[in-house]
Structure formats: structure tokens, C-alpha cells
Amino acid sequence: MTNSETMNNSTGSSEAVIKVENVSRWFGNVVSVSDVSFEIKPGITGLLGPNGAGKTTLLRMITGLAAVSDGNITVFGESVRNNSSLYSRIGVMSEHETVYQFMKGRDFVKMMGELRGVHDLDNAVDKAIQLVDLADAAYRPMGTYSRGMRQRMRLAATLVHEPDILLLDEPLNGADPRQRVHFQNLLQSYADQGKTVVLSSHILEEVEQLADTVLLIVNGKLAASGDFHAIRAALNDRPYHVRVVSDSPRDLAAALVKLESIDAVNVEADGEIVVLSRNVRDLQIELPRLAKLADVRVRRVEPLDDSLESVFGYLVEG
């Protein structure tokens, strides 16, 4: 049984809003998406994968901006390609910034509302800008914004027509910690209204904090799906390499090698320690204690292979 089969998880009894059935997309001889199937229900779904995995291509096909090479995609039971009646129900925020630097924030949101045919436009614009907490900066040129502020004003432009579905591609790029918390609260509130949010990201923590269901994409294929508890459980047996820098590497290595959670400890030529562990939580707890007992000062601890590429590689091979 594959990881994908063991981790499938329903988000609830509600009907699927988006259905992707055996979808592939290729460009010449290059396959970007290969035979992918999944359903998305109301709530927050994370589309997780390393850069180049095919996430953006999937989003473009879901919005109707790109055609499928094979398979079928429906939104609210309808084919989305060349279906203008669906566009008013979908809000899309692309990864790359698409703003005019000279344009004031409010004018940008208003322009997007006009393109969407929003009624009572001024009130809708004010409401959207209030939602992203940028009323004080609404009349400033967007070229004076920080990157995080531009992202939030772009989100306001995505929300101005109150869509039923939000498709967000790497939306937290450039956001500081406070902005991230506000953004997360806003998306959660939106999902609590019964709306559907699809959040694409290459960062594990972003998706883990927000998503009810996660779709993991690697090399254009669905590697696994489910909630993060199931995915984390599947990774319990995966060994992790952790680098530890200290002022007395050999003393610390001698202490660490006695832990049952440690498979191996190597002291590198430069004096750094590389620890192989299948229980990083235990290592996090025991490392400070053992360092204190050995009178060793730890300067830095960092994972060497907790990247999405290595996680996905493990999932595909499993």
C-alpha cells in the first residue's frame, strides 16, 4: 500500500468543491503534472511541495488559466476552462507580485473590483482593505509598501468580490511574524464561513499551522494526502541528520552516542558533530541536558535534511 493510500483523509461530510480527476499537464516532452487526482472540500487545504513540483501548474488548471493535457477538473460541478460564470466565485493570488508601484493601494483594490463587476464598489473596497488591516496605508503608493504590505493589499484585491474559493500561491512571502499571524487569522475566519481556501507553499510550518488537509506534490505527482498527524506519523521512522556545533565536540559526541534515540554520531574534520537520529524530539530534550552535564557549550543546532525534497523523497520511496 502506498503512502498516499494510507494517508487519505476526509475533511468532513460536505460536498467536494473542486474535483481533480487523473489530470496531467505536459509542455512538449516535459511532464509538469502526472495523473493527479484529489478532491477539495470547504475549509483550508494546503498544497505543499518543493519549488518546481507542479503546484503552480495545478492552480492554473484549477482556475481555468491553463488547459489540462489529460483528465478533468470541475469546480462546483462545472468545467472551469472558459467558464466565465465561475470566475466571479474564485479569487486568485499568484506567487509573483502584480502591482503598479505608482498606484495607491485603494486604487489598486478598486481597479480589481471594477474588473470583477462588484456592486457597491466603494464599500466593498473599504471592507476588503479593513480585512487586511491596511486602512492607514490605503492612500499611499504601493511602491512605498514593504513586501509584506504589498502581499496584504494584493490579498485585499483578491477578496474584494467576496469569492467562494481562494487560491493562494505562496501568499506569505515577505510577511513578518505579526503579518503572518494576522494573515492566518484572516484565512481561518474566511474558512469558518464555509468558504474554500487552497494555500500553496513550499514551507512545512506554514501549511501545518493552517491546513485541515494537506496535498503533498513532488515531481508532478501526488505523493501523499491527509492531515499532518497522519503525515507526521508516517515519518516517525525516517532518520534525520542534525548538525551540532559546540566548544568540545568529542566530549559531547561521547555523551550523545549513549542515547537510545541516536543511531550514529560523527565528528567531522572541522569539529562539527553530525547526529543521525530517528527521534528528533528526544534529541531536542536530551541535548541541552547532556551538554550541561558535560560542561559543553552548544553554539548551534540545525537539521541537515529536513527539506521538502528529502521528506518527499522518503514518502515516494516508502
Score class of each variant (00 low, 15 high):
Ser277Pro: 05
Asp107Thr: 06
Tyr87Pro: 00
Leu58Asp: 05
Arg278Leu: 03
Ser310Ala: 13
Arg106Pro: 01
Lys55His: 11
Gly54Ile: 08
Asn82Lys: 14
Val23Phe: 04
Tyr87Arg: 14
Gln179Gly: 14
Tyr240Asn: 15
Phe102Trp: 05
Gly174Gln: 11
Leu287His: 04
Asn82Gly: 05
Val257Asp: 04
Leu115Asp: 00
Pro303Asp: 00
Thr2Pro: 03
Arg278Ile: 12
Gly105Trp: 07
Ala264Met: 08
Ile203Pro: 12
Ser189Glu: 11
Gly113Lys: 06
Asp212Cys: 04
Glu39His: 02
Ser34Gly: 01
Gly113Val: 09
Gln184Val: 02
Leu308Ile: 11
His241Asn: 11
Gly271Ile: 07
Val68Trp: 03
Val267Lys: 01
Thr57Cys: 05
Ser225Trp: 04
Gly318Lys: 15
Gln179Cys: 06
Ala234Arg: 14
Arg150Asn: 11
Glu309Thr: 07
Val31Gly: 03
Leu166Phe: 05
Arg300Ile: 00
Ser14Ala: 14
Arg178Gln: 07
Ala224Cys: 09
Leu252Thr: 02
Gly43Glu: 03
Arg299Lys: 12
Ile129Tyr: 09
Asn219Asp: 13
Ser94Arg: 00
Leu235Asn: 10
Ala223Asp: 03
Gly54Arg: 04
Leu308Cys: 09
Asp305Asn: 13
Gly91Ile: 00
Gly117Leu: 10
Lys41Asn: 03
Val118Ala: 12
Val301Ile: 15
Ala53Gln: 08
Ile217Lys: 08
Pro42Cys: 01
Glu272Ile: 03
Glu114Asn: 12
Gly313Met: 03
Asp176Ile: 04
Thr11Tyr: 03
Leu134Cys: 01
Val214Asp: 02
Leu204Phe: 13
Ala66Met: 14
Phe183Lys: 13
Val244Met: 10
Val298Gly: 06
Gly113Pro: 06
Thr144Gly: 01
Leu186Ala: 07
Gly271His: 05
Arg289Asn: 10
Asp247Leu: 13
Ala16Lys: 11
Lys258Glu: 15
Ile73Ser: 10
Met93Gly: 10
Glu205Arg: 12
Gly220Met: 02
Ser84Glu: 03
Val160His: 12
Thr158Val: 11
Arg300Pro: 00
Asn3Lys: 00
Thr45Gln: 06
Glu114Arg: 13
Asp270Cys: 04
His241Ser: 12
Leu216Glu: 04
Gln193Trp: 02
Leu308Glu: 08
Phe183Gln: 08
His241Phe: 09
Ala157Thr: 09
Phe102His: 13
Ile90Val: 14
Val311Phe: 03
Val118Ser: 14
Asp270Leu: 02
Ala230Met: 11
Glu208Ala: 07
Gly117Thr: 02
Val311Pro: 00
Val311Cys: 00
Leu65Gly: 04
Arg289Cys: 08
Tyr100Ile: 10
Leu199Asn: 10
Glu170Val: 04
Arg250Leu: 14
Leu235Glu: 14
Thr196Tyr: 05
Lys221Ile: 05
Gly318Asp: 06
Lys292Val: 11
Thr56His: 06
Asp35Lys: 13
Arg250Asn: 11
Val92Arg: 08
Lys55Ser: 12
Thr213Trp: 01
Asn9His: 14
Gln101Phe: 07
Glu206Lys: 05
Ala230Thr: 14
Ala135Glu: 10
Val275Ile: 15
Phe38Gln: 05
Arg278Tyr: 08
Ser34Gln: 12
Asn123Ile: 07
Gly194Glu: 08
Ala211Arg: 07
Ser189Ile: 03
Met142Tyr: 04
Val245Gln: 15
Gln188Asn: 13
Thr2Ser: 13
Gly117Lys: 09
Asp169Asn: 03
Lys41Trp: 00
Met93Tyr: 06
